[in-house]
Amino acid sequence: MKYSALLLRDMHPSGKTLLEENDCEVMIADGTELSDYQDQLKRCNAIFVRNEPVTSQMIDMAPNLKVIAKHGVGYDNIDVAYATKKGIQVVYAPLGNNNSVAEMAMMHILSCARRIRCSQQELINGNYDIRFVLNDTHEIKGKTLALIGCGRIAGLVAQKASAGFGMRVIGYDPFVKPGMTECGIEVIADRDQVFSEADFVSVHLPALPDTIHSIGIKEFRLMKKTAFLINTARGNVIREDDLVEALNTGEIAGAGLDVFEKEPVEKNNPLLAMDHVSVTPHCSGLTVEASENLSYTGAAGILEVLYHKPLTWPVNKVEYNG
């Protein structure tokens, strides 16, 4: 075959089939350590990655590399600056899992509102009468949902929350003009006001230098003591120690988390032991439908680069390196 793509983790067949149908050999990394697949790196033309890091060292070990494809939206696990310096195109799949992530955000909102984790565990432990004493559960109709970041996924959350559940949706995004957007988000210029008015704050920020650790104890103290924090974006945009403090001291009522500051999350992370925190293992974008979309879109991006086609979803801008 003319080209070779290295998948650092196996993926949905849709992308692999597309690559193979276009004369591109598909290699699955022989292990999870760099030493396991360094020989495969030496002969690959493309790297296809989920959340595994793609470092400058890896890029230097792949002399024939032309493209790095991200199986998803956030590409902070890829050294894009170094790839650009080396003339390597980076592509991603920003639409593939949007709906799945938005649905997970709504799931965590509902889980927090109805205290699903607590009631489920009590039921498993034999306490069927928990239903009579769990008196701090609520409907979400009429409640205010605040979106921090008003991009594509946030827009889908807004549509589901407002049209499906009758919530008021407000948001803050420095790149979106205040006022009503087409998704029904009332964009507010005052970030503090958004935190203070919310019954639920849902985070939809990428991990960038100005967003990492941008939400901490100051924001939690602005929130209502009855409010919940939802994060299906990136764990490191929140100061996790501050979140633990806010939950322990009652600054906020609870949280719904699909992402954590350090992943894989450690077993002794205090957030895992709190019955007012709904947790999932960074799986919001891993439905069957999303996995198929992401795999196919990433593979299509690889082929666009290898065969000199117009790029649908480029991350960087480089001169083609040969």
Rank of each mutant, 00 (worst) to 15 (best):
G254E: 10
S295R: 01
A290E: 08
F48A: 13
L222V: 02
T144K: 14
D136F: 02
Y307F: 15
N268V: 07
P314K: 06
W313P: 05
V67S: 05
A299I: 01
N127C: 11
N45F: 06
N77W: 07
D210F: 04
D76Y: 02
Q38G: 02
P178K: 04
L294K: 04
G155W: 06
G151D: 06
A253M: 05
Q193P: 01
G179Y: 01
A290G: 10
V203L: 15
N248S: 15
T297Y: 11
A102R: 04
H276G: 02
V279H: 12
D258W: 05
I170G: 11
P94M: 03
E21D: 14
G285V: 00
I230W: 13
M180I: 10
D241W: 00
A255F: 06
P206E: 04
D60I: 03
K160R: 15
G179L: 07
N268G: 12
H138C: 10
N77T: 11
L41S: 06
S100H: 09
Q40N: 13
R221T: 12
R239P: 08
L271H: 12
F195H: 09
F48D: 12
M104A: 15
G235M: 03
T17M: 10
N135R: 14
E261P: 00
A207L: 07
Y307L: 13
K42V: 02
R117S: 09
A93I: 09
R168K: 15
E182R: 08
F175M: 13
C112R: 02
A5V: 03
E319F: 07
N135W: 01
A161L: 08
S119P: 01
D258T: 02
P174R: 13
G166C: 12
